[in-house]
Design a protein around this nucleic acid. Structure first.
Length: 824
RNA sequence: GCAGGGAUAGCGAAGUGGUCAAACGCGCGGGACUCAAGAUCCCGUCUCUUAGUGAGUUCGGAGGUUCGAAUCCUCUUCCCUGCACCA
């Protein structure tokens, strides 16, 4: 009988569905629960890619493993279905975003089923459905009530031809994605922000407690970017302008001040005669993308004002510069060219003076002509610094700050690099922000009973924001006074949707509440969360923030959403590069399933490499795994009778059970597979039913279909997927046997090697082995094994045997653990 | 630019101070089986040498630390991920 994986896999997928074995309820008393979650996908119209298959296989193996270990396992799937691609398709090819998205979802579900994933399909959620985004809006209002959502001006990419805001992705080389001849402009618009910075300190502190990969934790720390420094107040024509610095020790060296180009009060500060210059410079800036800004040369323009250094009362020029981040600190920095390379470059470019205020020991910072070769960023003694001259610069930081504080010219300040979360999107395909603007009442939240604010169907795409041009949507009565008012036309960032979806999975049909407290808390926090490292900061940070905010709003009682995080590596194309259509190296998992079956694909995906490592796709590996399954199939197919196990086999089985369990638990799936393969290879033609069943259980999380098939064939009535995971009996693991096997293996290698060497001139008929007397028994016990491995007749002597056959006197070479040999 | 990760035999990949010429898989070569191919099984697979041995050269590149380095440090090249409106 052939290994007809297609029919076999279909059969089991159908049965799992019919018997609802993966549907779960909270009420399972006496069972520990386990929440296993893979990051839900954006349902792209091109369907599942290999990275998805990898991600879901990793999670599925773990979920199945935990289920067999007796946990009540929640393993759900959903779709992050709002987002830009659907809207782009609407603009480009007049597709209806809803239809477009739902078609893609159907396709995703179909493909995911083919992988044999153990999801509870009754809990599927889709963020574009009103019964989901209603609760996005609900939470937005809660955040707003608590003062955690607010409005502020912020720069956006703007295309004058589309008459709309562009996403970073829609900006290509500074031009609009649809109009290659049109420069993107920067505009400042009123936008909604969420105060993630209120939780910055806690978000940072709690990283320590997470069972997450270290690199991700590091990236989160850096993203939050806590730094201690001082806020120093500069006087500019009578107004106080605060400047944040981590280096107050260099304050005597300030020779200019730079304000961010995106600073909301920039134009107030510019002197009238410099307005034109500054505006010209502003126009030159093409995009708000961080990487674009960084690639640009550090440039600035003098704005016609002078700032007074609070320590020296010296007046220094104020510039507007493209390298100052508006949202960090106060959006203004002090320039100390002698001790900061960026300031140094800027000063060189604009001919600004430099003044060294730190002198390193044993180092002459001025070259002979009195010029600084570069900024000196190290430590040393202060010079030219008034009463602080001669002190160590690191030690003096606190003192200078104290001094400024006493004189009310500054204060100690903790700064975070993390900025508040901009949640407004000037886009159609997202959850509408539930706010109304009334001339009399101002900003009015939509009352809870009126939620959801439905996203209108059949809108016009192409010119401007489709919600803004939709009169029916925009024109409403003020919920407070009943007069004419306008609806907010911004929708929410899709990260808003994905910040709490793991809670909704616990109670996905609830129409009264986002979720029931008890149900959510039965499962949460998520015990095991898997996804790509591309979410290292944003999604994972927003979800952590949301969890803390919802905790403080009383919706949940937990501090962190994801107890253990696992990042799978990226699978590159066979050429070693990222899979992409343009490179033509894309591998479609569905094609692979058709060719080799889902079990083989699942097995291959986790045996390529350690699942956390990036790796290159190689169809040969898949083929190799397929061959292994075919071998397995014919072996089990041929099983007619069982025999008794023996001590050696028991030792092997228990060793394998122990190792596979440990390897799965520690996410070393590739090692688990090696262990499983070795166990299979060590099976004799016949062994006990118990051994075979244990083997099937071990492989079932990886290859559930084929495992079910033979589990059934062996007469079991229920599913292997819900059977119990084998427990290793460590007392039956015999390390003596394992040692023996090693030395026997080594001896076999030696015999084979000699056999090969002499086979050129003669064909040996027998191998004579001379062992240390007390080892004789070991080799005799393994004689069959030895002959099987070497394919030659073996005769064993003790070196002390008088009547041994040893014409060349080889027996003298025998050492403990390494017998001497002679072949003829 | 900033932040994080990576580079190991023909290929993929294990290995983070000695037990390493380096697990495992693939590919390739040879043999068995077959009319033949495929499948399967066995043997081999850094180089030279050899009755199981011995020697040499390897772990992106260049230096360094150490009795000893794939493993630790410094510099360097290339690749991957994220950088706040892609999700």
């Amino acid at each position: 009988m052939d290994y007809n994986f297609t029919a076999l896999e279909k059969k089991w997928q159908k049965r799992w569905g019919e018997k609802k074995i993966f549907e779960v309820k909270e009420e399972k008393k006496g069972k520990e629960n386990f929440y296993c979650l893979e990051m839900f996908p954006y349902p792209s119209s091109s369907g599942l890619h290999i990275g998805h298959a990898f991600n879901y296989t990793i999670g599925d193996v773990y979920a199945r493993f935990k289920k067999m270990q007796g946990f009540n396992v929640l393993h759900p799937m959903g779709y992050d279905s709002f987002g830009l691609p659907a809207e782009n398709a609407a603009i480009k090819s007049h597709a209806d975003p809803k239809e477009y998205t739902e078609t893609a979802i159907k396709n995703f579900i179909k493909q995911q089923r083919l992988l044999g994933l153990s999801y509870d399909w009754t809990r599927v959620l889709m963020t574009h459905k009103p019964d989901y985004y209603k609760w996005d809006q609900f939470f937005f209002l809660k955040l707003f009530e608590k003062g955690l959502a607010y409005r502020k001006k912020s720069p956006v990419n703007w295309c004058p031809k589309c008459n709309t805001v562009l996403a970073n992705e829609q900006v290509v080389n500074g031009k609009c994605w649809r109009h290659q001849d049109t420069d993107v402009e920067i505009r400042n618009l009123e936008q909604w922000f969420v105060k993630t910075t209120d939780y910055a300190e806690e978000l940072l502190e709690m990283i320590e407690k997470l069972n997450w990969p270290e690199p991700i934790k590091m990236m989160q720390r850096n993203w939050i970017g806590r730094s201690e420094g001082a806020e120093v107040v500069f006087d500019i024509d009578g107004d106080k302008w605060p400047v944040f610095t981590t280096r107050p020790d260099t304050i005597f060296g300030v020779s200019f001040v730079v304000i961010s180009l995106q600073h909301p009060r920039l134009m107030q500060l510019v002197s009238p005669d410099r307005k034109k210059e500054v505006e010209k410079f502003l126009k030159k800036m093409k995009s708000v993308k961080q990487e674009d800004l960084d690639k640009m040369e550090k440039e600035g323009v003098f704005i016609g004002r002078y700032a007074k250094n609070p320590m020296t009362n010296e007046k220094v020029p104020v510039y507007a510069g493209n390298f100052v981040v508006a949202d960090y600190g106060s959006g203004m920095v002090m320039g100390v060219p002698a001790h900061d390379q960026r300031d140094f470059d800027f000063a060189v470019k604009y001919g600004l003076p430099m003044k060294a205020v730190i002198e390193p020991r044993d180092f002459e910072i001025y070259e002979r002509n009195g010029q600084l070769p570069s900024a000196y960023e190290g430590d040393g003694e202060l010079i030219n610094s008034g009463e602080f001259t001669g002190m160590n610069n690191r030690k003096v930081i606190a003192e200078i700050t104290k001094y400024l504080d006493k004189k009310k010219l500054g204060k100690v300040q903790v700064q975070f690099k993390m900025r508040d979360w901009l949640v407004s999107r000037q886009r159609y395909w997202g959850a509408p922000i539930p706010i109304v603007y009334c001339n009399d009442c101002g900003i009015v939240p939509v009352p809870e009973k009126d939620l959801p604010v439905l996203l209108p169907a059949k809108v016009e795409f192409g010119i401007g924001n489709p919600l803004e041009t939709n009169e029916k949507f925009v024109n409403v009565k003020c919920p407070k006074c009943g007069m004419k008012a306008r609806r907010e036309t911004d929708t929410m960032d899709t990260f808003f949707d994905s910040s709490w979806y793991f809670l909704r999975f616990c109670d996905p049909q609830n129409s009264k509440k986002p979720f029931d407290f008890n149900r959510a808390m039965y499962w949460n926090p998520v015990d095991f969360y898997t996804g790509g490292a591309e979410h290292a900061v944003m999604h994972l940070m927003y979800a952590r923030f949301f969890t803390k905010a919802l905790r403080d709003l009383g919706f949940i009682e937990m501090d962190e959403p994801f107890t253990r995080l696992f990042n799978q590596g990226m699978i590159h194309g066979e050429d070693g590069f990222v899979m992409s259509k343009s490179r033509g190296n894309v591998v479609n998992p569905i094609d692979m399933i058709e060719k080799y079956g889902a079990d083989a694909l699942r097995l291959a995906l986790v045996s390529f490499a350690s699942p956390d490592k990036d790796t290159n796709w190689d169809e040969n590996v898949l083929n190799g795994n397929f061959k292994f399954l075919r071998k397995l199939f014919s072996y089990f197919n041929a099983v007619k009778k069982f025999s008794k196990s023996d001590e050696r086999m028991d030792s092997k089985i228990n060793r394998a059970v122990k190792n596979v369990t440990d390897f799965i638990e520690s996410m070393k799936y590739n090692y688990a597979i090696i262990e499983i393969r070795n166990l299979f290879n060590s099976f004799p033609d016949q062994t006990s039913r118990e051994n075979l069943e244990k083997f099937l259980k071990l492989i079932s999380p990886f290859c559930p279909h084929i495992a079910e098939e033979f589990w059934e064939k062996m007469g079991n009535k229920n599913f292997i997927s819900v059977s119990s995971w084998p427990k290793a009996d460590e007392s039956r693991i015999n390390e003596g046997f394992e040692m023996e096997e090693k030395i026997v293996e080594r001896l076999a290698e030696d015999i084979k090697s000699v056999k090969n060497l002499i086979s050129k001139r003669e064909k040996p008929g027998a191998a004579y082995v001379y062992v240390i007397p007390n080892e004789k028994k070991v080799f005799e016990d393994n004689l069959d094994n030895l002959e099987k491995k070497t394919q030659i007749h073996v005769k064993i002597y003790s070196v002390s045997d008088k009547d041994k056959h040893d014409p060349l006197g080889k027996s003298k070479k025998a050492k403990p653990g390494k017998p001497a040999i002679y072949l003829e």
